[in-house]
Design a protein around this nucleic acid. Sequence first.
DNA 1: ATTGTTCCGAACCGTACGGTACGGTTCCCT
DNA 2: AGGGAACCGTACCGTACGGTTCGGAACAAT
Lengths: 221, 221
Amino acid sequence: MARTAGTVADDSDFTPRQAAVLTCALSLLVEGGEKGLTTAGLARAANCSKESLYKWFGDRDGLLEAVVTFQASKVRPLGASESALDAAGYRRRLVTFAHELLSVLAGDVSLALNRLAIGQASRPESPLGRLLVERGKHSVTARGRALLAAGRRQRHLEFDDATAAYSTFYGLVVRDVHLRLLLGDALEPGEDDFAAQAEAAVNQFCRLYGSQRSVEALSTS
Amino acid sequence: MARTAGTVADDSDFTPRQAAVLTCALSLLVEGGEKGLTTAGLARAANCSKESLYKWFGDRDGLLEAVVTFQASKVRPLGASESALDAAGYRRRLVTFAHELLSVLAGDVSLALNRLAIGQASRPESPLGRLLVERGKHSVTARGRALLAAGRRQRHLEFDDATAAYSTFYGLVVRDVHLRLLLGDALEPGEDDFAAQAEAAVNQFCRLYGSQRSVEALSTS
DNA sequence: ATTGTTCCGAACCGTACGGTACGGTTCCCT
DNA sequence: AGGGAACCGTACCGTACGGTTCGGAACAAT
């Protein structure tokens, strides 16, 4: 199933050829949804044979799983600097994070993959949804929680439960935008200005969880 | 397509027989998702013939559309009392609304229908997602906005844009719970206590949008 | 009783897809 | 140069589903 290379892990246990095929599968998935990705169609579009697909990925479910993990492996780049910041600087970090979150969720591949996982949610034996959640969502969630925890450590925020605080943060930022995008609904004018949306959400979040110090700093800035 | 009855509208242009079949289709859809609803399967489960299905609904898309509108026609009952309330009473109304919102979104049929609409979102010619949004989501959204507007009229809340305020309310209440349920993810212990979640969300919402009066009333209660 | 309507049950067709098998080609390794 | 592995392209098979057609049963109207 997976090839063991001499190197530790280049991309994520995928041959360059396989990566190319999976990229092609992703683009097929973006246009046309799940039924847009057929084994024959992928073989034709990627100039490979169905036999290779089945040799590499086992069956169609394996292919879907590979697509998800492949995409998730590319979301790795993160680990932004953990440097100490003043209140305004930390606020800007929050806004940036919120903006990134919205941009990622609104991305084509993210939407396609989420639609795919949701479509597979009916049969519980295929843990595609859980896979997507664990490999994609959890990483950004962990990053967000770490960011909030850092804010608490530096006395910019005050809360007991980091998980609950991040949940509130997520709700304020995302609202029903993700769901409506998943449904194919078009965003209202103004709603697509993610920078402004992120700014407003962080404003509200700081009013809920900001420490006294940070609030003062905000009012004096 | 639709039969015109002497009465204005019993359920919603659906014969009792058709309603029974659609109910059956709904239950088929709940278990098994979209591919769980086949014409042959529905005919077998509902003790009717495929011929009748095609006579009534045209084709499969018509059937799906009928299922959505049929379910939406049952969500009508609402129009809760618009009576004036004191701060604590209005707060309770908010909590009740939030609780209802969570319960509805977590319901089996709601999840199944949303999954269906999301699965159909790839092909834009089938306006199933928009249909679901307009007939289902908009009604509860309108109800929520009206509730918030009433709160402002009675000086319990303060805001400029009712739409934005409701959007915040929705985000605080629902967070990522809906999406995770759609993905088949299980709720953490405590997260499934919708009453407590609604209470907490309304707390936060009032800290953001509550008027001075209502905040005082809350602290003295 | 006869006629007509409605609808069930089942058989049928075409298509599309998942999965497999096979011949031919390229490329690497020895 | 020779051998073998990987791989492409294609043809093929079985199945499942959407959609159509047909015979016959139940039932209402006349």
